[in-house]
Design a protein around this nucleic acid. Structure first.
Length: 465
RNA sequence: GCCCGGGUGGUGUAGUGGCCCAUCAUACGACCCUGUCACGGUCGUGACGCGGGUUCAAAUCCCGCCUCGGGCGCCA
């Protein structure tokens, strides 16, 4: 569409799609519904136009109710058959569930109505008819498998308790952003199409970039580190990460959202402080802004985790796991914490906790070792009792040590020259971490499957919708 | 990637060799009902993932494929 004049002409000459049964008082309505009132805002004693989805029709014989649902809630429309226009009744009660309708009428106070008010319609217009056979039931009377729900996510999100998850997710991201701003961070966006991986090339999705080999980024790690040496010093990013691992679990995604933080002149303990602050801020934001959603989700006692998350060294963590006696075999120094070990430890600690001072050999090259013990790294993880949420640490900022680290892990420093080069021009000591947004939401709301925290999840099998 | 368990009307399920031309709920269609709020009532339509095999007989047992979920590994 080129000239705005043409668009305007089109708008006035193309009539609004007429309702199926044609009943409508007055001229065709404009496509833009300026005069619309949300269900929750309908005040008794006023004339209003409400528009939304037909949640349900309850026909009791002489009287019938159409429950209309929009983003704000539900409102009841009353049809008294003997006292109303026959066509009006036929249109209003002949519509299928989940059709989009627009109802204009008088809003009246009525004690017997679910919300205390109901609409007595003057006109009903079917804006978009829904097929009578729905692939799932948005009114929630019958359950649907997660797979069915994800195939029909639009309808799934008409359910209050599903919608609530994503309102909570949005509140988490909002709170996190605000907290980062409090911490003096600048929000950045790093490339998602990259030439090399973060730690190697095995678990990346390859893409073709104008005939060259490229990959979807696995983490903003190296790019955010470069920014601590820039004029920005302290940065954060909320963005997608892509992992080509063929894992098949309720806690992994092939496309996830990473909340990343990195700051110049921070050591790993400063980074853990920031991490705890941000995670708690997310809970606070949800507690503050999502009372209704939490109620919908059945949380009566949602609480912000207490401050001062315990910090267990790797060595202490192993000792505590072994002390639980839950594992068949005792863990030894250098062993990774298995899922079983994480669960045993989570149960023993009973709250969020950090695991610090990991053996250097299990952490990637960019994590700095302790100055007084090269066998120990400054890497840390933040654990929810049931799941790992965060991985972080102080970074190796010394050029020679960094190059050495590459070689020790069998990586070719040349492929990462864009990164290593900048360490020759004044890279301050720095630290940071990455937090899985979906895992945060999942653990916060105790969701059984991480896919429930993503609108359109990407997993081993699922590529659409 | 390895291991385990599933796939039955639109949706969610019962049914482990004959009792099944398949149960129940919900949805859908028809009818009844003037205050429902998971409205109620009567009647009706509608399904065994695909292919092969075993058997007198298969939703049920076996094989292959497709597909879904869970456990593990790895990680956020």
């Amino acid at each position: 569409m080129s000239a705005s004049g043409n668009e305007l002409a089109l708008r006035v000459t193309v009539p609004f799609r007429p309702a199926k049964t044609g009943l409508k008082s007055g001229p065709p309505s404009p496509a833009v519904m300026d005069d619309r009132t949300y269900a929750a805002d309908a005040e008794s004693g006023t004339d209003a136009t409400v528009a939304g989805w037909v949640n349900e029709i309850r026909d009791l014989g002489g009287i019938a109710f159409l429950i209309l649902r929009d983003a704000s809630g539900k409102i009841q429309v009353k049809f008294e058959k003997d006292e109303m226009d026959e066509n009006l009744v036929e249109t209003g009660l002949g519509v299928h569930r989940e059709s989009v309708v627009r109802v204009t009428g008088r809003v009246e106070s009525e004690e017997r109505a679910p919300t205390g008010v109901e609409v007595v319609p003057d006109s009903v217009e079917v804006v978009a008819e829904a097929d009578p056979e729905l692939p799932l039931d948005p009114s929630g009377k019958v359950d649907a498998d997660l797979s069915t729900r994800l195939d029909n996510r639009t309808l799934d999100l008409r359910k209050g308790e599903v919608k609530a998850v994503f309102e909570v997710r949005a509140a988490v991201l909002r709170a996190v952003r605000e907290q980062f701003r409090e911490l003096g961070c600048t929000e950045i966006n790093t490339p998602k199409i990259v030439a090399t991986g973060t730690e190697g090339g095995t678990e990346l999705f390859p893409v073709t970039y104008f005939g060259r080999e490229a990959f979807m980024n696995q983490s903003p790690q190296l790019f955010k580190q470069l920014m601590v040496g820039s004029g920005l010093e302290r940065v954060f990013e909320v963005g997608p990460i892509f992992r080509a691992e063929e894992h098949n679990t309720p806690r992994h995604l092939n496309e996830a959202t990473s909340i990343d933080f990195e700051s110049a002149f921070y050591d790993h303990t400063d980074a853990m402080d920031a991490c705890e602050t941000v995670v708690r801020a997310a809970y606070e934001g949800v507690a503050e802004h999502c009372q209704e959603e939490l109620e919908t989700l059945g949380y009566e006692d949602f609480s912000v985790p207490e401050a001062d998350f315990p910090r267990l060294s790797y060595e202490e963590a192993i000792e505590r796991v072994n002390a639980t006696g839950e594992l068949d075999e005792q863990l030894g120094w250098g062993d990774d914490l298995s899922t079983e070990a994480e669960h045993a430890l989570g149960e023993a600690v009973g709250r969020h906790y950090f695991v610090t001072d990991w053996p250097s050999e299990v952490k990637p090259f960019y994590i700095k070792d302790h100055d007084d013990d090269p066998e120990l790294s400054t890497g840390f993880d933040l654990m929810h009792p049931s799941l790992e949420l965060v991985s972080g640490g102080q970074r190796e900022h010394r050029y020679e040590h960094l190059i050495e680290g590459f070689e020790q892990q069998g990586l070719e420093p040349e492929a990462f020259e864009y990164y290593t080069k900048m360490f020759r021009y004044g890279m301050p000591p720095h630290a940071g971490w990455g937090l899985g947004a979906e895992r945060l939401v999942m653990t916060m709301l105790d969701l059984g499957n991480i896919r429930e925290a993503v609108i359109f999840p990407r997993d081993r099998q699922r590529l659409s919708p």
